[in-house]
């Protein structure tokens, strides 16, 4: 089955009648996933969006519960459920993998995050393969393929003027019923993508686990501004803070994205801070991505999307770090 590229607009219009369909779009010069509507500058030709799709499942700010005083003088707590039926349409294989990693964080290890789970169950994922990865893309070095996305409900393989459509899950199979009018039973030549940036990631997690006290952390952290851009644009960074906002006698407790690059992140009562300088913070971030997460979940927390490489204001480049460590004899 294929769908012609010029039929995509019509398909989105149909799907958006029943669900909120998030598509890659250019809004005020920034590419991100936005709810489809007529007139939206939808861009399936982008390499990947500047902002990752993680906020569909893990919103930048998420209300958890409201509280306030009762008539009897006590207090009440009322949990929010703001989840809704959503389609993530046009996500790339790297970002699809990032959702698999977020699933591990929020749904395993003895505690299920009820807010994440509620939205995850209501999300349908439609992935488009990358025929032409960007020069900052290195997903293949991280064990992914720009041509596959095993976790996606529906996979669209990029061809010249169409996409080859495959349902990969039962959920995807069922969803294709709504696509019927737009699909054609024709063959098409899939355009395979290949990343040009190649790293040697082999053995890097093991080497890193022996490099905690290595001088490399002093060197690479020197130029870091601790601005947090890398964590903001990273599709797999999931740290959050919990805070609240009050109005009269009521309030809302919410969680919001946080960043391990910020000094207050680990500051404790009495101002003891186990990660007092950027050296400890940069080390923790890279080691978490490439080593600690693997110890805990058996996977690497970097999908090779290249966003941090592109957005870091001082070019603190994870690909260079991986290559340096790969080449070292630690």
């Amino acid at each position: 089955m294929i769908i012609k590229k010029d039929r995509m607009g019509a398909l989105l219009g149909t799907l958006a009648q029943h669900k909120t369909v998030f598509v890659p779009a250019l809004i005020d010069g920034v590419s991100k996933f936005a709810p489809y509507r007529e007139g939206l500058d939808v861009r399936f030709d982008l390499h990947n969006t500047k902002l990752p799709p993680k906020d569909l499942l893990f919103p930048q700010t998420q209300k958890m519960y409201r509280y306030g005083e009762t008539a009897e003088g006590g207090h009440y707590v009322e949990q929010f459920d703001e989840s809704s039926e959503r389609v993530l349409f046009g996500v790339r294989p790297c970002d699809m993998r990032s959702i698999n990693l977020l699933d591990d964080v929020f749904l395993t290890k003895g505690f299920v995050d009820e807010f994440y789970e509620a939205q995850r169950k209501k999300l349908l994922t439609v992935c488009i393969t990358c025929a032409a990865p960007a020069e900052t893309c290195f997903c293949e070095s991280m064990g992914l393929s720009p041509n596959e996305a095993p976790d996606a409900d529906i996979l669209l393989k990029s061809c010249e003027d169409c996409y080859k459509v495959t349902a990969q899950t039962q959920k995807g199979e069922a969803a294709l019923a709504d696509w019927r009018d737009f699909l054609e039973d024709t063959q098409a030549q899939v355009l395979p993508g290949k990343t040009s940036l190649r790293l040697n990631f082999e053995g890097v997690p093991q080497k890193l686990s022996r490099m905690y006290e290595d001088p490399i952390w002093d060197e690479i952290s020197t130029k870091c501004l601790n601005c947090g851009t890398c964590t903001f644009v990273c599709p797999t960074c999931y740290c959050f803070d919990i805070s609240q906002e009050n109005k009269m006698k009521e309030g809302v407790r919410f969680r919001c994205w946080d960043s391990c690059m910020f000094s207050e992140y680990t500051a404790m009562a009495g101002w003891h801070n186990p990660r007092p300088t950027k050296k400890e913070r940069v080390r923790n971030r890279f080691m978490h991505k490439l080593c600690f997460f693997e110890e805990r979940y058996g996977k690497t927390l970097c999908v090779g999307c290249g966003r941090c490489v592109e957005c870091c204001p001082v070019a603190l480049d994870i690909t260079r770090l991986i290559d340096d460590i790969g080449a070292s004899d630690a």
Partner: peptide, 17 residues
């Protein structure tokens, strides 16, 4: 370590893995 969530999700209380 400083903690926010208490259930291993919010990230900040890691020591290594």
């Amino acid at each position: 370590m400083r903690m926010k969530c208490g259930i291993g999700k919010c990230g900040r209380c890691n020591i290594g893995g």
